[in-house]
Simulated scan of single mutants.
Amino acid sequence: MPAAPTVLLTGASGVLGTALLPELSGRRVIALVHHTPVPGADEQLTGDLTAPRLGLDATAYADLCARVDAVVHCAAVTGFTDGPAATHALNEAGTLRIVQLVADANALLYHVSSAFVARTGITGSGSGPGQDTGERTARPENYLDSKRAGEDVVRTSGVPAVIIRPSVITGDSRTGEISAFQGLHGMLASLLRGRLPLVPLSPGSLIDFVPQDVVAATVAALVRDGAHEGEVWVTAGDQALRADRLLELAAEFAAQAGLDLTLPRMVSPDLVDRLIRPVFMADLPPATRRRLDDLLAMTALFTAHQPFPTDLGKPGLPAAMGADRAESALHAALSQLVRTKGMNRPAPALVTA
């Protein structure tokens, strides 16, 4: 009996990696880890994506190349506060190391990027929504510039590769469980706690997210089918929730959960820059100004009304994200937030005669 194909998985302890491991059953999975052990992998290999030969000695590297049939590259700096040097060191230079491994192993590459690389107005080299300096610590432009650079590395490498572009990844579509909360979770938590004085989005702005199990199933299908070229968009597409609908659903959820929620006012980002910042923000405490500036930077990702492309629903891939599925996934994410963050009100004591 021939040996099972061997997949090297980077980022196995991350949001997508933890969801992907069970989907790769039938393959032998080697998890390349830096610090965090990964339960569920067939083998773990300690390495460093930013080092030559991934931090392995020559013998271990040659052995890895001889065994690997495909590489799923999920590892990335996804935070918006790590700074450009650290972000590019992993998302661009690390991808260059992975591409070299794929070439040396004569393997296939499945490179996980981001749908938001299409938001070309958000870039560190230009201006656009969320680009004013303010006092923000969140710099999504550093992340997006590094992901664009990583894609360029893959495209110009000549190795057989599929670039996978998910939108915001949320927790499991049924349970909401996730290995680490993401930026959208932070905004939803602030919303439920009444800490958003306003939302700098127009009602028709599209909030595109996909549950981690949908993205994992897509990647696994591509690996299983031996796809070796092209770009795959894993997004809600034109079924993404509008910003006003998301707020409406959050209000309904808060009422069911017994949370007091006064919905924030929606204002255009231009109004924030022209009026709210110069007139009102100077007198706010520094921490409040930073929170608002970070919110502006984060919501800049969602200012577009034009939907992303999507390949969900195409032959061999998971079903498309309908509006009902997006709403259900949002409810699961909110439920997980409330459980994990301890936002639930205690049940009222029973009154007996």
Rank of each mutant, 00 (worst) to 15 (best):
A221I: 14
S268G: 02
A297G: 15
L263N: 01
R291T: 03
H305P: 00
A236D: 09
A287H: 14
V267T: 06
A250E: 02
A220T: 14
L292W: 02
L334P: 05
L334I: 05
T299K: 01
A250V: 08
R289W: 05
A329F: 08
A220N: 08
D273K: 00
V210W: 08
R325G: 15
P286E: 15
G237C: 11
A319Y: 14
D311E: 11
Q306E: 12
L292R: 02
A221F: 13
A297M: 04
R245S: 11
Q256A: 13
K314V: 07
R245E: 13
Q239K: 04
L241N: 00
A319G: 15
P315S: 07
V223L: 14
Q239G: 06
R224A: 15
M281G: 01
A300M: 04
V234G: 15
S205Y: 01
A333S: 12
A220H: 12
D293K: 02
D208H: 10
E252P: 09
L249G: 05
D270G: 05
D260P: 07
V234E: 10
A220F: 13
V232M: 13
D213Q: 08
P307C: 09
A220Q: 11
L295C: 06
L259F: 03
A254N: 04
F253H: 13
T262A: 13
E327S: 10
A287M: 09
V267K: 01
D283Y: 14
A332H: 03
T299D: 00
A243E: 02
S268Q: 00
A297P: 13
L284K: 04
L312K: 01
L296A: 07
A257W: 00
A217R: 14
A287T: 10
G258D: 01
R290G: 06
L259H: 05
R325C: 03
L312P: 14
A254D: 07
A216F: 12
A333F: 03
A300L: 02
D293L: 03
V279I: 15
L261P: 04
E231H: 10
I207R: 02
A300R: 05
I207H: 06
V219E: 04
V234D: 14
D208W: 14
A320G: 15
F308P: 10
D260R: 07
L330V: 03
E229T: 15
G258N: 02
M281D: 10
F308H: 11
